[in-house]
């Protein structure tokens, strides 16, 4: 193109045009909040909002990890099953330690470390199969999804693994406790999202994640160790799952074959609603946060109004996902 500015040097971008693609998730979230307030005044009470956000934290944290994996051009379907598996193993570890007369703090701490190690380990296995094994991420994680789900069913012998009472009482505040009215899960979620945003937007690793998903060959030719970048993304996803489980276990104190069911779809939905591109190369952490909260709010609003059946929740969520993608495609420019 001829230089439109004539002999002048190029200018830094003029006033940025308003982009629906960037702001869409946040506008939609705002509309949802207004809608909720109109439907039922209870919606906007701190109590209700804290409750909703606390429950969002599990899939919300997992979705932060999913944003990284999807931005590299991959996908991880195994997160829901992995959550159940980690929860089962964590409960068994803690139950085994408690009769040994160990202090509850140590029991829980060791359980948490075990959970994190298992999460990162499982992520590394997914990542290695994708990178060294050269298998499509969809296939790899479809496989491990089945494996983890089956393992937790086996460990629970088809039933439920329950945390011993002593440990449960000690561990309970991690989910139910709060700081100035904000529960720990919300605080951890906010922290994970902030760290995720800083890593994706400000660090070298984040730049490499985006470059890998944008065009893997260009990344490789730019001396980027593409395999390591991807491997780290899957490990990060595993760590996020483990963190979510650490917050989840004290809530019910049990794990079964149905723990974390469909979490993978909720996480992926949050990522997509948030504006991250499914084929990779463009990730939006805060969009993912908005997406996860939106999904939880829909559920909450339906509960608060009697007008629409709660059973239609999934249908409405489905519509939102499809609309989100349509809006993004339109904003991207018609072809």
């Amino acid at each position: 193109m001829p230089d439109p500015s004539g002999p002048d040097a190029p200018r830094p971008s003029r006033t940025r045009r308003f982009e629906l693609k960037t702001w869409g998730p946040f506008i939609a979230l705002g509309i949802l909040v207004i809608l909720g307030t109109l439907v039922n005044p209870v919606f906007l009470t701190p109590n209700n909002l804290v409750n909703v956000l606390t429950r969002t934290a599990f899939t919300g944290i997992i979705a932060i990890g999913a944003t990284f994996v999807i931005t590299t051009g991959g996908i991880d379907l195994s997160v829901g099953s992995l959550a159940a598996f980690i929860a089962g193993v964590m409960i068994m570890v803690m139950n085994a330690l408690q009769p040994a007369g160990m202090a509850p703090l140590s029991v829980v701490a060791i359980g948490m470390v075990a959970a994190l190690a298992l999460g990162v380990g499982a992520g590394l296995i997914n990542g290695l199969l994708v990178t060294k094994g050269r298998i499509e991420p969809f296939i790899v994680t479809l496989g491990t999804m089945g494996i983890f789900r089956s393992l937790v069913t086996y460990l629970a012998n088809g039933g439920t693994l329950s945390l011993n009472m002593g440990t449960r009482g000690f561990y309970r505040p991690v989910y139910y406790g709060d700081l100035f009215g904000v529960t720990y899960p919300i605080l951890v979620y906010a922290l994970v999202a902030t760290v995720g945003a800083v890593v994706l937007y400000r660090t070298r690793y984040g730049r490499y994640v985006t470059a890998t998903g944008s065009n893997e060959e260009v990344a490789r030719y730019s001396a980027i160790k593409v395999d390591r970048i991807k491997l780290a993304a899957y490990a990060l996803q595993g760590a996020c799952v483990a963190l979510a489980v650490v917050l989840y276990v004290p809530r019910l104190g049990s794990a079964s074959a149905t723990t974390g069911l469909l979490w993978e779809l909720e996480a992926i939905a949050a990522v997509i609603i948030g504006g991250t591109i499914l084929k990779g190369g463009a990730g939006r952490i805060w969009g993912t946060v908005a997406g996860a909260i939106m999904l939880a709010l829909i559920d909450n609003i339906l509960n608060l109004t009697g007008a629409i059946s709660v059973y239609l929740n999934a249908a409405i969520q489905g519509c939102i996902i499809i609309i989100a993608v349509l809006v993004q495609r339109d904003a991207k420019g018609r072809r």
Binding site: T210, A211, N215, A282
Partner: peptide
Amino acid sequence: GKGLLVDKPLTPNLTLLALA
């Protein structure tokens, strides 16, 4: 195909090889 991320702005392309 291998040189530039055509969907991205100029800056991340310029510094990708030398980002360290």
